[in-house]
Amino acid sequence: MKFICSGSEIDLRIDHLYVAGWTGRNGDAVQHHIDELAALGVAAPSQVPLYYRVSNTLLTQESVLEVLGEGTSGEVEPLLIQDRGRIWIGLASDHTDRDLEVHSVAASKQACFKPAAAELWSYGEVKDDLDTLAMHCSIEEDGDWVSYQKGALSNIRPLAELMEGAGFGDGSAMLCGTLGAIGGVRPASAYRMELQDAKRNRRITLNYAVRTLPIVA
């Protein structure tokens, strides 16, 4: 898969794709979210954090995401990729089928493509400043752009810890968890996402629209 880093195109091999869930650094907040979802019929995770395996072909750079039905939504997440011993950090969306999530979280992760930004940064450049990096997601809702998620990576477990827990290695990519949704998790027609590095005055952006396909019985 091709990405851009420091103005140059790089081709990275991705054989294994992980979606890390329940990665909040505040344990009480994670448990509160587990309890909220349990009330909606979503089963509690078998462990925290949990590393869902999905098809490596789900990572995409397409700007329009086709989904089945009205019950899907995206989440802004840091993306890690390792290839030939080197680690890169970028931005992706864990687009998930929320209707299917009630029956199987693992299946809901597999049901949707995961949009990824074309740009990456060297992980080594930012590894000492990871907690200062910030993410923001806006959604298009009823014709207006609304702030949906916002916060620093300090709200997520240390990325080095997540890589170790997943058994991360060459040929691996991982979406590393997200932030709470302002106003609650809900579908949207389009997304604008950013990973911000204020220290180096730079950002990675990810924009995509959602095209809904009918559910035919």
Rank of each mutant, 00 (worst) to 15 (best):
C5K: 12
G7M: 12
E9D: 15
D11K: 08
L12F: 00
D15H: 02
A20Q: 01
T23E: 01
R25K: 15
N26I: 13
G27K: 15
D28T: 09
V30Y: 06
H32A: 15
L37A: 03
L37Q: 08
V42Y: 00
Q47C: 07
N56D: 12
T60Y: 00
E62G: 13
S63E: 14
E66C: 09
S73L: 02
G74N: 04
R84A: 14
R84T: 11
R86D: 04
R86K: 14
I87W: 05
I87P: 00
L91R: 05
S93W: 02
D94P: 00
D99G: 12
L100Y: 08
V102T: 13
A106H: 07
S108E: 00
C112L: 08
C112W: 06
F113K: 11
K114P: 10
A118Q: 11
G124S: 06
G124K: 06
V126Q: 04
L130G: 09
A134W: 07
A134N: 03
M135Q: 06
I139Y: 03
E141M: 14
D142G: 00
G143D: 07
W145T: 05
W145H: 03
Y148K: 11
S154T: 07
N155V: 14
R157Q: 15
P158L: 12
L159M: 10
S172D: 09
A173V: 05
L175C: 07
G184V: 03
G184Q: 11
G184D: 05
V185L: 03
A190H: 08
E194Y: 09
R202Q: 15
I204D: 06
I204Y: 01
I204F: 10
Y208P: 02
Y208L: 11
A209H: 04
I215N: 11
